[in-house]
Simulated scan of single mutants.
Amino acid sequence: MILVARDGGRRSLPGGALKRQEAASSAARRELYEETTINAPAVSYLFAFGELNKQHHVFEVTVDRFTKQNRATRYGAAGGFAGGA
């Protein structure tokens, strides 16, 4: 599971909104990279949850390995992703 440091010392799953006409899997890879600098070559859709106007899409990602830069970031990691839509 990957957790991102947020304001006030909180932690959350990385995520964000879909861009116009962007597939949820593309958004998952984009948001993961934007928030952690981790590239995910394989993304598998697991499920969605939430309310009608705020859906969260949950993915499993495969990461080849973490680089020294990734380990030095403020993010903890081990293998999941949620992207909000």
Rank of each mutant, 00 (worst) to 15 (best):
L18K: 02
E22W: 05
S12G: 09
Y75S: 13
V43Q: 01
A17L: 13
P14M: 04
A40W: 01
G9P: 01
G8N: 07
F66L: 15
G8S: 02
T62F: 08
E34R: 06
E31F: 04
Y75Q: 15
V43Y: 00
R74N: 11
S12K: 05
G50V: 08
H57N: 08
A28L: 00
G79V: 11
S44I: 09
V43T: 05
Q69N: 08
K19I: 13
D7H: 07
F59S: 03
V63Q: 05
K19T: 11
H57L: 07
Y45I: 05
A48H: 12
L46Q: 09
P14I: 05
A24V: 13
S12M: 09
R29Q: 15
D64P: 09
L32I: 06
L32K: 03
N53L: 07
Y45T: 14
R29K: 13
D64H: 10
G79W: 04
G50C: 07
N70E: 15
A40Y: 01
A40I: 01
S12Y: 06
D64V: 10
A77Y: 05
T36Q: 01
Q69E: 14
F47S: 12
D64L: 12
T73Q: 12
F59H: 03
R6F: 08
T62W: 05
A27K: 01
D7Q: 11
K68D: 15
R71C: 14
T36K: 00
A17C: 10
S12C: 07
K54D: 10
N39L: 06
R71H: 04
A48K: 12
K54G: 07
Y33C: 05
E35D: 10
R65T: 07
E22I: 04
R65L: 06
E35Y: 04
T67C: 04
T73L: 10
N39D: 15
A77H: 05
R10G: 07
A24R: 06
R30W: 00
R11C: 04
A24E: 12
Y45K: 09
A24H: 07
R71W: 00
F66D: 09
T37F: 10
Y45C: 13
D7F: 08
G15Y: 00
I38V: 13
A24W: 04
R6C: 12
P41R: 03
G79Y: 08
Y45N: 10
F47W: 11
G8P: 02
L52G: 06
A48G: 08
N53D: 09
A48N: 10
G50A: 05
E34N: 10
L13D: 00
A48W: 14
R65E: 15
D7S: 14
N70H: 07
V61C: 00
A40T: 02
R6Q: 14
Y45L: 15
R11N: 05
L32H: 02
R71Q: 10
G76P: 00
S26A: 13
T36M: 00
V61D: 01
L46P: 03
T62D: 14
Q21F: 14
G9N: 02
Q21H: 14
R10M: 11
V63W: 02
A23S: 08
R11D: 03
D64R: 03
N53P: 05
F66H: 07
